[in-house]
Design a protein around this nucleic acid. Structure first.
Length: 425
RNA sequence: GGAGAGGUGGCAGAGUGGUCGAAUGCGCCUGACUCGAAAUCAGGUGUCCCUUCACAGGGACCGUGGGUUCGAAUCCCACCCUCUCCGCCA
């Protein structure tokens, strides 16, 4: 969330930002509720002050003075109860509105609302020339390494089994990504696959409700995580970190669960959009001064990983309309997926494989994570995240780019030591 | 899952209805002493919110949330977490 003081003082900026991001949030309503809330707060505090004064006088009151003070205290208690209830209601309304306000987009981020508004920054690698392209679902079926039918039978639509060498390839991708991240100075961390709803909303996710993409657990305030960003960000929830420890680079591993409600069709074919996958996630806690450089660093690490895998990709600077509420700026890596739209008879396409975002202090303010400066001052720090590898989409890229005329799959050189084989046939 | 004990400031640890935002010790900061350090002495040392240009003033916080009371760290209830023992188990 944003600092309410910032919203009060820069309502015009906040409104313009909502427009750029194509988000409708009633800032004027928020400001009205905020003013009403402050009025109530002052009233309540005044009543409490009187109450405290009477309690203080009571300490030394003579027996014949006491009844009068007690009566006054009782009256105060009643009016205080009424005002406090009003205040709680006002604060609830206030917070609901405040949490809807998105982070301020970086002025560098391209303004716009459609995919065409995303700015392609650069491309890397050669798009392979493949005759008779097969998509990863077909390849997986033919090689008997990927089974959606049994996944659907046992767990439901969009669940899958990895078999044989593909099961090993997944583990290889995970370990390769971890090793790369560690080599770049990241501390590995295996996190829980569930988190309290408080951590979900603290990171900017919506754990419950109609448009939620999260599997929540019945009768408990915990949910399956959609990304280790949630558990890694939650790690320091409510804590104060010494500045000399920043930046803190963490690489988290977890399984990820997403309901993908309402997502069907071409954009969810095969492994591209599934309910469960594994992900190696980069995360950085940074000081405000460091965060922009750290964002570039995350992008470099991502590119290093995909370059080493020999997968052609392009880098997109994501436009304001697609940023996602917590983020000031976001870069996606899209890999070339030769068979991505093959199911519809099309040719290859770019498909998102990583995403790195700068949250500035948006998550930190919600989660209460702060930095203590050497001079003793305390302020919210910055959080950033980026995908190293999401296995499902990573496997699409490896399988489809590695397909050979004989129907086998060539394994990228960087992965061979991790797989123990150089080909799936 | 069952039984018991406990959750207080950076840490340790007092406090069982008002004099407690909280003793004491350690740690940390500042000053004195010293060539410097140690030791010693003096002072200071939580977070958040509101009002204020500032000085300052006010409010909240003793695991969390309710309740009792004129008044709660202190009493009552629920929940969470930790520890010990038992059970169960990868």
């Amino acid at each position: 969330m944003l600092d309410i003081k910032f919203i009060r003082e820069h309502a015009d900026i906040v409104k313009k930002n909502c427009e750029d991001r194509n988000m409708r949030v009633d800032i004027d309503a928020l400001l009205r509720v905020d003013a009403a809330r402050l009025d109530l707060l002052k009233e309540v505090e005044l009543l409490r002050k009187e109450r405290n004064e009477i309690a203080d006088v009571m300490k030394s009151a003579s027996p014949d003075q006491r009844p009068a003070f007690i009566e006054r205290g009782k009256a105060l208690k009643e009016s205080l109860a009424v005002k406090e209830a009003d205040l709680v209601a006002a604060e609830g309304e206030w917070l609901t509105l405040l949490l809807q306000v998105p982070n301020i987009a970086s002025p560098e981020a391209p303004v716009g609302n459609t995919d065409e508004d995303n700015k392609e920054v650069r491309r890397s690698g050669e798009i392979p020339v493949i005759e008779e392209v097969k998509d990863h679902v077909e390849l997986g079926k033919t090689l008997d390494i990927l089974d959606f039918e049994r996944g659907a039978k046992v767990s439901g639509n969009k669940f899958y089994y990895l078999k044989g060498k593909l099961a090993l390839l997944e583990q290889a991708l995970i370990r390769f990504a971890l090793d790369e991240a560690v080599a770049h100075g990241f501390t590995p961390m295996t996190t829980p696959d569930v988190a309290k709803d408080e951590m979900l909303s603290g990171t900017g996710y919506t754990p419950r409700g109609n448009e939620s993409q999260i599997y929540s657990i019945e009768n408990q305030d915990i949910s399956l995580i959609g990304t280790a960003e949630i558990t890694v960000a939650g790690y320091y929830q409510g804590e104060i970190i010494e500045e000399e420890k920043l930046p803190m680079r963490i690489v988290g591993f977890s399984h990820c669960y997403r309901t993908e409600a309402g997502a069907y069709g071409r954009e969810s074919y095969g492994l591209y959009r599934v309910h469960q996958f594994s992900k190696v996630e980069l995360f950085i806690y940074a000081s405000p001064e460091q965060s922009e450089a750290m964002h570039q660093e995350l992008l470099r690490v991502e590119e290093a990983i995909w370059t080493k895998l020999g997968i052609p990709y392009r880098v997109l600077d994501i436009c304001t309309g697609d940023l996602g509420a917590p983020y000031t700026r976001k870069y996606d890596l899209e890999a070339w997926m030769p068979g991505k739209s093959n199911a519809n008879g099309g040719r290859g396409e770019w498909g998102e494989i990583t995403s790195t975002s700068n949250c500035s202090d948006y998550q930190a303010r919600r989660l209460g994570i702060r930095v203590k400066r050497p001079n003793g001052s305390i302020e919210f720090l910055h959080t950033l995240n980026g995908t190293a590898i999401a296995t499902s989409r990573g496997m699409i890229a490896v399988l489809e780019n590695g397909q050979q005329p004989d129907g086998s799959i060539r394994i990228p050189d960087a992965l061979i030591p991790y797989c123990g084989f150089d080909r799936i046939s």
